[in-house]
Amino acid sequence: MIGRVALGDRRAFADLYSATSAKLFGVALRVLKDRGEAEECTQEVFIRVWHAASRYQVNGLSPMTWLITIARNRAIDRLRMRKTGPAGLEEAAEIPSAGPGPEELALAASDRERIVACMGELPEDRADAIRRVYLEGETYKELALRFDVPLNTIRTWLRRGLLKLKECLTR
């Protein structure tokens, strides 16, 4: 469908919207926690898809992973815009760069049970930190305060946790 959208096929775009809008809205809602803003974000995602479909490259990742990444990036951009003042900008800069992570790969493959099982293999605080940063859009700084650990410890938790998730998901 994305290939046909790249050629300007409006019917393919409508089909793509029907097939993916609920999931992409869910991604935006988890990050933004505001239904109206998530709806606007989802609309922006589809505008971007219409204009960027020709740039989609098949590189081993599913088309759904590409769409989820666009939705997550757009939602995080909206979070960054919410934060005002120097402290807000500093926190927004610490939002991790988006790329298809293990949880997005599992969502894209509609394999929720697998990701839940793999998250269960992580220590509870590490799994909670991963959920909060990648699904709820919390910053590293917010996690460090929440878990009362240094910022570099949070970075280490997330990096190691994602590596373990990746290993588990490839088994």
Results as ranks from 00 to 15, higher is better:
residue 164 K to V: 12
residue 141 K to P: 00
residue 89 L to N: 04
residue 167 E to F: 07
residue 123 P to S: 09
residue 143 L to G: 08
residue 1 M to D: 14
residue 144 A to W: 06
residue 16 L to D: 11
residue 36 G to F: 07
residue 42 T to V: 12
residue 34 D to I: 05
residue 80 R to S: 03
residue 83 K to L: 07
residue 136 E to F: 05
residue 38 A to N: 09
residue 151 L to D: 04
residue 129 A to D: 02
residue 144 A to H: 03
residue 145 L to Y: 06
residue 73 N to T: 09
residue 156 T to V: 12
residue 97 S to W: 00
residue 143 L to Q: 11
residue 114 R to E: 08
residue 58 V to W: 02
residue 35 R to L: 06
residue 127 A to F: 09
residue 18 S to P: 01
residue 151 L to K: 13
residue 55 R to I: 02
residue 66 W to A: 02
residue 157 W to Y: 07
residue 152 N to H: 07
residue 63 P to W: 06
residue 60 G to C: 05
residue 166 K to E: 15
residue 13 F to I: 10
residue 54 S to N: 06
residue 45 V to A: 03
residue 52 A to C: 11
residue 161 G to A: 04
residue 100 P to T: 13
residue 75 A to M: 05
residue 67 L to E: 09
residue 23 K to R: 15
residue 43 Q to K: 14
residue 39 E to P: 04
residue 73 N to K: 11
residue 115 I to Q: 03
residue 100 P to I: 11
residue 74 R to L: 12
residue 89 L to C: 04
residue 67 L to Q: 08
residue 123 P to V: 11
residue 20 T to M: 06
residue 37 E to P: 02
residue 56 Y to R: 11
residue 121 E to W: 04
residue 57 Q to M: 07
residue 75 A to Q: 00
residue 49 V to F: 03
residue 162 L to M: 10
residue 170 T to K: 13
residue 161 G to K: 06
residue 79 L to N: 10
residue 150 P to N: 06
residue 79 L to T: 09
residue 121 E to C: 11
residue 108 A to Q: 06
residue 165 L to F: 10
residue 39 E to F: 05
residue 162 L to I: 04
residue 133 V to F: 05
residue 21 S to K: 14
residue 40 E to H: 13
residue 68 I to Q: 08
residue 28 A to V: 13
residue 131 R to A: 13
residue 114 R to I: 04
residue 161 G to P: 08
residue 78 R to D: 02
residue 159 R to K: 14
residue 87 A to F: 03
residue 12 A to C: 12
residue 118 C to K: 03
residue 143 L to K: 10
residue 92 A to L: 05
residue 18 S to I: 12
residue 34 D to Q: 07
residue 91 E to F: 02
residue 58 V to F: 04
residue 7 L to M: 15
residue 119 M to T: 09
residue 7 L to Y: 08
residue 59 N to P: 01
residue 30 R to A: 08
residue 83 K to I: 01
residue 114 R to P: 00
residue 128 D to G: 02
residue 6 A to T: 01
residue 142 E to T: 07
residue 73 N to I: 00
residue 57 Q to R: 15
residue 107 L to E: 09
residue 170 T to D: 10
residue 56 Y to S: 10
residue 4 R to Y: 03
residue 121 E to A: 11
residue 147 F to P: 05
residue 107 L to C: 03
residue 11 R to E: 15
residue 8 G to H: 14
residue 120 G to T: 07
residue 119 M to R: 08
residue 102 P to R: 00
residue 9 D to N: 11
residue 126 R to H: 12
residue 53 A to H: 08
residue 36 G to Q: 14
residue 83 K to M: 09
residue 107 L to H: 05
residue 158 L to P: 07
residue 138 E to L: 13
residue 82 R to D: 01
residue 10 R to C: 03
residue 97 S to I: 02
residue 164 K to L: 15
residue 22 A to H: 12
residue 44 E to G: 06
residue 159 R to C: 03
residue 125 D to L: 13
residue 127 A to Y: 06
residue 96 P to Y: 02
residue 23 K to W: 07
residue 13 F to A: 15
residue 115 I to A: 04
residue 160 R to V: 13
residue 11 R to V: 14
residue 75 A to V: 04
residue 91 E to L: 10
residue 134 Y to R: 15
